[in-house]
Design a binder for these strands. Structure first.
Lengths: 278, 278
DNA sequence: AATCGTTGATTGATATCCAATCTTGTGTTT
DNA sequence: AAACACAAGATTGGATATCAATCAACGATT
């Protein structure tokens, strides 16, 4: 059992990754302490952990908020991610054994099947996981942690933007990177990684504001009860209407019909689902 | 003014970097709270920050200790550092303007002068700073922070090992990397970066144990009084004498004949002269 | 000498309290 | 009516005191 503040930090991280807590959302100490039924101090410690991870920002005497990276920072994060993955690619092209290549191919194949089966949510998760599997094969835990942190921060960005790109292309990229690397065409593989990330960033269009769709209490409820991870690992994400075609914007945060008539909820904000058919 | 826990975390970080607090050193909450004259809670928050940064490790119900990386982890840190700096090198070789190259050359020159003047301590600091300047020129704050964290962790290693290498070679490496990069010989520059770091790691020989030479109160005293950074930024480091012979153990923490494990003297446990750094 | 309780110290956490600061709402002024 | 000023309320940052759980060292027992 790790400390309670770590547990709470994990839950908050999870909620942010799942887009249940959106950038700019206030993380009040009292509110969270009541939600988790712990003292304010434990909450504060959890918030410090989140801030160190780049997922929250603490403003003195004003409190903690889910971090809201600027476009500049978004690009820096993706640049760093590219740099790390290119470096790992260079290492793997030398050192990776057959079992490693097999694992990568197997992962791509699983994602392909998910796409074929129309399970966009699963395909999305697998698509993200590919990068983590990739880095894990470097067998460098320090590097893994750095990469994982960067990936967590990219999920922040996805709440702030309007995704507009084709997942099938991204899947193909994964497959091609593996091919290129195994054939020793390192340079081409690294270029493809760069292009891959640029494709994602280019698809981003920073929207002006994001409004919370639910109170923290509602957002965190699924993680609380019996087990911290029983419910809503994927469900809370975009209510992915599994539309058959490929350009479904899986990451968009659709505005659910709220049952909470909070006076200030200008739930009508933008987030127009560009490209989401029907 | 940032929070007090951040201030304390900064001081502890500084003390660790300065090798006044060595790996394995116990960071007791009560002891630190008395040293800094704050409550235990603030200390705990500072320790959480240190742990998130990889400089301390917290064991449940046992407390916090200055982190003591394994040889495996040491190599992973250096691998990650190599990966990051190679990636930055690749970026700079494309994008860096004349002013940037000038800054790098100027830094190398300053270090060269320090070496010439026999100011080994300054040369050492400049040698470390070179890498930070290098990364700063990438103008990517996210990458800078990642790199800075890795560098901080390498300073931990230097307390654990017996350094055995020639600083002049390392200085030449810096100079040559700049030359190669500016001439567009990226591949050679990257190889040199790799070699450079491997030279450092190869010089390392993990010693068995490190013993604290002073109590935390003594170690932290210089940072406390008037200003947090008035005294002892370099002094406490190893009496770096790159003596002619190759095995000058530059960074070693010599095992002083401590009055420590006197089986009976619980006086030592009582922290004889706690506080009052007079 | 080795094992097994006991005791003391330390950590994890809570509740309560207080000062400083920020936010908000009201009331006044222009 | 709009802009400003000020007071009240709320929130954060922090201190202190307290408590249970756990760990470590010590001592007694076999």
């Amino acid at each position: 059992m790790s400390s309670r503040s770590q547990t709470i930090a994990d839950i908050l991280t999870r909620a942010i990754i799942d887009h249940r807590l959106v950038p700019g959302c206030k993380l009040g100490e009292r509110e969270l302490s009541e939600i988790f039924d712990v003292s304010r101090i434990v909450v504060r410690q959890a918030l410090i952990r989140l801030a160190d991870d780049g997922l929250a920002q603490i403003e003195r005497n004003r409190g903690a908020f889910v971090a809201k990276p600027s476009m500049q920072e978004a690009m820096e994060i993706y640049d760093a991610l590219t740099l790390v993955e290119q470096g790992v690619a260079a290492q793997l092209s030398d050192r990776l054994g057959p079992a490693g290549w097999a694992e990568l191919r197997q992962h791509v194949e699983r994602q392909r099947q998910a796409v074929a089966a129309g399970n966009d949510a699963l395909a999305d998760v697998l698509g993200q996981e590919f990068h983590s599997v990739f880095v894990r094969l470097s067998r460098n835990k320090v590097m893994q942690e750095i990469h994982a942190q960067l990936v967590r921060r990219t999920t922040l960005l996805r709440s702030l933007i309007t995704a507009d790109f084709d997942y099938c292309n991204l899947l193909d990229d994964h497959s091609r990177v593996v091919d290129l690397l195994e054939k020793g065409r390192l340079k081409q593989a690294m270029d493809l990684i760069d292009t891959h990330h640029r494709a994602v960033v280019r698809g981003y269009i920073m929207d002006r504001e994001v409004y919370a769709e639910m109170t923290p209490a509602e957002a965190l409820a699924p993680y609380l009860d019996g087990r911290a991870d029983s419910a809503a690992p994927i469900a809370p994400r975009a209510p992915t209407r599994p539309s058959g075609n490929g350009n479904g914007t899986a990451h968009v945060h659709v505005h659910l019909p709220k049952q909470d008539p909070a006076p200030k909820s200008r739930a009508s904000a933008k987030k127009t689902n560009r490209g989401l058919p029907a």
